[in-house]
Design a protein around this nucleic acid. Structure first.
Lengths: 224, 224
DNA sequence: CCAAAAGTGTTGCGGTTACACCCATGT
DNA sequence: ACATGGGTGTAACCGCAACACTTTTGG
């Protein structure tokens, strides 16, 4: 490895976090409106520079926690973006992560009224700062891919849920309709969920059974 | 994004390249013997710091090209390793890449006799510097995974090859024996290769047909 | 003629897909 | 009673795995 001749000759590192949820039957990402130039008025995913006393993963967790005051949030490294001019204020390489939230209402409102923070459907994003459009598209593709061979969907659902809710979320993210009977057969065959003795109520139709996940740790399982 | 208060408070970036080939029926990685402390005598994958005038990808290509004077080498970003103490000489985050070579003899011999460079089978690695053991294991897993849903094996084979050679390389990397007839059926059904009119000769057995790849660009194809 | 690897089809099984009707509740 | 989503089984089809012998060459 080369000698680190002059610190300023080299690039520094930031982490950027693409936070997903499903809201109003759409896959959404959390964006912050930038209050300062050069991107004033544009939107960006949360992030910040990696400090010398923290790991890259810690930096990602810290930047996520600035927005989402909750532990046990799914967070995974996505890809590292290293174009030279991606940040006009200097040479910054971004290690992007993606996170999954089942509850769209647990993020922190911005205190500074120059800043706003909102969920945007991935299909109608506003104008984005930096290379964040590319990062978000990358994250959506990764999410779709991982849905089909892991159980990470678990991170997008509350503790208890109906099988129809589960199916609906798969359909929203994968953008395809699934057969109800085949879907249930597959989910049950994998022993991923277990039935509780509770049911939904208050709706003008037959109540649905509520289910829980049998295991909440990430697992590789071909689903589709 | 935060303000970059003091340059030295933040981490800098290196790229490290895990270069694979298949040699003597084993999956091997290219390692360099370190000539200086603190890792003198240990081995490491090639790499170097990312300069302020190059992208991270360019840095990876440059560091690969220092060793392998050849264009059109498969090179893909692997993962970013960001533990605090992974480099004792300072805060360095490593963006790891992996590369695939079909010919184990095209790397450059070290000019400096303090340095040596060799292929090591991934199953008998020497003592490694930094966190390179972890990086190599990560790369092997990624390689195995991608073999089963892409056509990147193409990068590990010469222009012309027999189906038996192709099968043997799959078996070596995946560590499992494959059925000859089923393997050929699948490969042919995918239209990945085309038969040439050449054959092998000089061996004390029936000559084999030589094949070429129908397409040399990366493609997503479930293979196993 | 012997050794060594090349080349070639069929069958059975299991998992995936396609598909339609009755049930329980709220209004 | 009616509207709404919940819940259930079967049959056809397809892809995958298992499996053994003949062919061609060099020595």
């Amino acid at each position: 490895m080369e000698k680190n001749d002059k610190q300023h000759k080299f690039a520094v590192i930031a982490t950027d976090i693409v936070i997903f949820t499903i809201k109003n039957r759409e896959l959404c990402v959390l964006l912050i409106k930038m209050g300062k130039e050069p991107f004033k008025g544009l939107w960006a995913v949360p992030g910040g520079l990696v400090k010398s006393n923290e790991t890259v993963d810690s930096s990602a967790k810290r930047n996520l926690f600035k927005i989402v005051k909750k532990k046990d949030v799914f967070l995974e490294q996505l890809y590292t973006f290293g174009k030279i001019d991606r940040d006009p204020s200097g040479r910054v390489v971004s290690v992007a992560y993606f996170a999954l939230l089942h509850d769209p209402d647990i993020f922190i409102k911005a205190s500074n009224d120059n800043e706003s923070i909102y969920w945007f459907p991935v299909n109608s994003l506003p104008k984005l700062a930096y290379d964040h459009k590319e990062i978000i598209h990358f994250a959506v593709e990764r999410l779709r891919a991982k849905l089909t061979y892991t159980n990470i969907m678990f991170s997008l659902l509350p503790k208890e849920f109906t099988l129809s809710e589960l199916q609906k979320k798969y359909e929203i993210i994968l953008c395809e309709k699934l057969d109800k009977r085949n879907f249930r057969k597959k989910i049950m065959a994998l022993n991923l969920v277990k039935k509780t003795d509770k049911r939904t109520s208050g709706k003008a139709h037959r109540p649905a059974h509520l289910y829980q996940f049998a295991q909440r740790s990430p697992k590789l399982i071909p689903l589709f």
